[in-house]
Design a protein around this nucleic acid. Structure first.
Length: 276
DNA sequence: GTTAATACCTGTTCGC
DNA sequence: TGCGAACAGGTATTAA
């Protein structure tokens, strides 16, 4: 389930193989993922040099030499597989295949097809429907306690749901929403509007810490990608509450069983004692 | 205008 | 063992 840290890890892992490289092969193997590909998708990419690879929220952005920007979203099951040389055979759900002049092959594999690819230009990027309206990058100075508090003011929805709202802060998914709330000691059921002052400060800090630690953990797995055939998209990371229903709260003086509840159709994991 | 529910998709897990 | 139901979840769309 790629959230911001996983996407950042994928981006960093791909950059050495793609930045400054020319795409000599672009193969689109079905008409759509979550949405249809642009009609001229392969034509606009083939032969282009990639100038830079970067991330915005959960999107990977590849800037091409003519100003085109390839937008990639991994959805929830999207993976990018890197091989030196053409793969002997493609796997099921390999939907897009790219190759560089250096004979590096990259496959976008996405069983559930919640992923997406689209094209924009540097000029139209900010207004692109996938990117317009995104909130601040949580790891940047554009995100802080006061900014979060202002964004939550008046919101009559649980704080958990608000954290998943990409307009409030970009890049957080279900897992890191749970983890950040646990770390901040805030109940997922708390009204978003009531997260102000010191609580908003704690939550903003928790979001930054949880994401930064996950990126650091992902970075340590990148070394392995560079050696063996790379599968970018997931990495193992240990969570304090996510998917730990019934297990003991890790806070030393607590140890109570963690609970699960469903909020707007999503599982939330939390400790009723440590989170208020 | 805001918030909640639903659709999309398929591999995996669980209960019978 | 086999089968079907439930579940996972990011985001656009629809409903309330």
């Amino acid at each position: 389930m790629p959230e911001l840290p996983e996407v950042e890890t994928v981006c960093r892992g791909l950059a050495p193989f793609l930045e400054g490289r020319r795409l000599v092969h672009v193969e689109q193997r079905r008409p759509d993922l979550r949405w249809p590909f642009p009609a001229d998708f392969t034509q606009r990419l083939t032969g282009q040099r990639i100038i830079a690879l970067r991330r915005r929220a959960k999107y990977i952005l590849a800037e091409l030499e003519d100003g085109t920007v390839l937008i990639v979203h991994l959805g929830m099951s999207g993976r990018l597989l890197i091989t030196q040389g053409r793969p002997a055979e493609l796997e099921k759900h390999d939907h897009v295949v790219l190759a560089t002049e250096e004979d590096v092959w990259i496959r976008f594999n996405d069983a559930r097809r919640f992923g997406a690819m689209d094209l924009a230009t540097l000029e139209t990027l900010d207004g692109h429907r996938m990117l317009a309206g995104l909130g601040p990058e949580p790891l940047s100075n554009a995100f802080s306690g006061p900014i979060l508090a202002a964004s939550l003011a008046g919101k009559r929805t649980p704080i958990k749901a608000a954290l998943l709202d990409q307009r409030v802060v970009a890049g957080i998914g279900n897992i890191y929403a749970c983890e950040a709330l646990y770390r901040a000691g805030i109940s997922p059921r708390r009204l978003a509007a009531s997260v102000q002052g010191i609580r908003a400060e704690r939550l903003a800090l928790a979001v930054k810490q949880v994401l930064a630690e996950a990126i650091a953990a992902g970075g340590s797995t990148l070394r392995d990608y560079r050696q063996a055939d790379g599968e970018l998209g997931y990495f193992q990371h240990s969570f304090q509450v996510y998917d730990r229903e019934g297990l003991a709260c890790v806070t030393p003086e607590c140890g109570r069983p963690l609970l699960r509840l469903v909020q707007s159709g999503r599982s939330t994991f939390y400790c009723a004692r440590c989170q208020r």
